[in-house]
Amino acid sequence: MEWLTGPFEVAFVQRALWGGVLVSLVCALAGTWVVLRGMAFLGDAMSHGMLPGVAVASLLGGNLLVGAAVSAAAMALGVTALGRAPRLSHDTGIGLLFVGMLALGVIVVSRSQSFAVDLTGFLFGDVLAVRGSDLVHLAAALAVALVVSAAGHRPFVALAFDERKAHTLGLRPRLAHAALLGLLTLAIVASFHVVGTLLVFGLLIAPPAAALPWARRIPAIMAGAACLGTSATFLGLLLSWHLGTAAGATIAAVAVAQFLLSHLAAGLRLRRPSPANS
């Protein structure tokens, strides 16, 4: 069993595992609502739309986390404002903001001599470089995400399935949507500097989507997503260690593979004839 436990006896791999687990838990809470509301494109746009803030903070020698938060907040406000524009589809507004923010970020980063290194770190992160302070930040983000998810559960449910009914019930769907954007922003900002936008988006979407065919209640989807994200982190780090592959990309690949296997198994289950019909 040395091949299974050996990698996790190394201190930096242990921190990477804990970092991945915390990211998985935060993303399970936010990602479930993203999948249920069909907001995957928004999540991808916001994760990459942080680049201008990160680039400016890097060039000025400031805090990357603050730069990412400012950029993500600007992206969320822009999406909200364009969502109210007449004769403009929601996806069109998100797509335009996505391209504009990404282009602006690349322009800013290109002013730096370390352009390639900075952009690679932004996209892929370095999960094996997780520090103790990163774990503290992720634990704090998880606590906030739990509070927001618990407090907003009822309006989030109504918003996910029938926005007009949410308004009729007095659940203030606009405020609920803003809180949901805040939860998504928290998950992305808290995690990207550890694992990069690739892994954040992978763990935000793939585990909840994989759990969806097997769970009927939202808490069960969240629990399943948390378990799948955790297992993807463990298996990804294990494969990365033995195969010499990039850790973050391997974790994301395992998460997507879980999604594909889950939906393949769900499809086979639906095709199987029931005992009453056989």
Rank of each mutant, 00 (worst) to 15 (best):
V23F: 04
L97T: 01
T32N: 08
A257W: 08
G61K: 11
M75W: 15
L186S: 04
A249E: 09
S240I: 05
T197I: 15
P273F: 15
L180G: 14
R154L: 06
G236R: 03
I205G: 00
V136S: 10
A210M: 02
A225E: 07
L181I: 13
H90N: 00
D44T: 14
Q14D: 00
G49T: 08
V144F: 07
V99S: 14
A158L: 15
L96C: 11
A129F: 02
G95C: 14
V23G: 02
P155D: 05
A40R: 03
G61F: 03
V10Q: 12
G93I: 11
P173K: 09
V194H: 00
Q258G: 12
A247T: 06
T250K: 05
L169Y: 13
D162C: 03
L237C: 05
E163Q: 14
V54W: 03
A72N: 03
S191M: 06
L22M: 02
F259T: 10
I221M: 14
P273D: 07
D118A: 12
L138T: 05
G78E: 12
A40L: 05
S114E: 15
L59V: 12
L135C: 08
R271M: 14
A72G: 13
A249S: 11
A178Q: 06
F98A: 05
R84N: 14
T230L: 07
A116G: 00
V254Q: 08
L96N: 01
A151V: 15
I205R: 01
A129V: 08
T32Y: 10
S191R: 06
V70H: 08
W33A: 02
D44A: 15
A129D: 12
A145N: 10
E163Y: 12
A140N: 00
L238M: 13
V66G: 10
F122A: 09
G38D: 01
